[in-house]
Nucleic acid binder design. Structure first.
Lengths: 145, 145
DNA sequence: ACTTGACCTAAAGTCAGGTTTATGTATTAC
DNA sequence: GTAATACATAAACCTGACTTTAGGTCAAGT
């Protein structure tokens, strides 16, 4: 069992955020001891799920919906499975997009390194759009596709 | 040269968002023809950079800062290089985090598939935390590390 | 001529996701 | 006994990133 302060340190989240999540109903199982929140393994796991659903772009109210389903037991297994299947696709798409963004960023790193070396962007401009060094060309093409 | 409507379709962004970006100073080079915005290749590339910096978590005002640097020419190459190096680290960290979240989501997909098959969560509970099927155990361990 | 559609601005409005403030309680440290 | 620390609540406040509204210009089609 943990206090809100301990959980705040464990997850590196402000106490105010944890209380806000609680108010929004994200810890439907949480117990209290004379008014004080008691976070158990149950809530720790809930927080891991919250972070994961948040990372997938889900809104707080939809995370609450999931918590509500979890309280309803076996009859909502299918809904919960569908939710995670959908989040899986969203996260996979997001990773793919970030990889593309990363290639753009890597290209720009090379771009400015080269501009610093040359003192100007003229040499680079002359190589655009398809006469870049092979590995850089790949980054550029991927970032501009 | 493109109109705001064409750019809106190209990037799948609302016209209002493009005008908002312009108001925030993200297209410092943009020309106008009797009041009407003319997006050139320059602005198209700016927008690609905007999307990439946004994806890396940069705020609009910091993207404007970058655009201001770009207007100042060669003297800000180093600042711009440092910015992209920093964004690179942020994006790499974000991809790593999303991969972890993805493992949690995959674990949960298996969890509910199994719960649906079994009609309850008892069998799964009995396998936790370290007697899961090998491939699932890997997902679980990664998601809980 | 007049309607339609695409553009324009300035200003107000919206929304999610917290954070801060003001006030109070309960336990521990000296 | 009193000061510090950690907890509590309700309600107000804040921020970033848009979006909507209200009003206007301008060119093309019928």
């Amino acid at each position: 069992m943990y206090t809100i302060g301990q959980i705040s340190e464990m997850f590196n989240l402000p106490i105010s955020t944890l209380r806000y999540y609680d108010m929004e109903g994200l810890f439907p199982q949480m117990q209290r001891q004379s008014g004080i929140r008691k976070f158990s393994e149950n809530e720790v796991e809930a927080l891991r799920v919250i972070e994961c659903l948040k990372a997938s772009g889900l809104e707080i109210k939809d995370i609450k919906q999931f918590m509500d389903w979890a309280m309803q037991g076996a009859e909502t297994y299918e809904k919960r499975r569908e939710l995670f299947e959908a989040r899986r696709e969203v996260i996979e798409a997001e990773i793919a997009n970030l990889k593309k963004m990363l290639d753009m960023v890597k290209f720009k790193c090379w771009y400015y390194e080269t501009a610093i070396k040359d003192g100007n962007e003229d040499g680079i401009s002359a190589m655009l759009p398809d006469k870049l060094p092979k590995d850089i060309q790949e980054l550029y093409d991927n970032a501009h596709s």
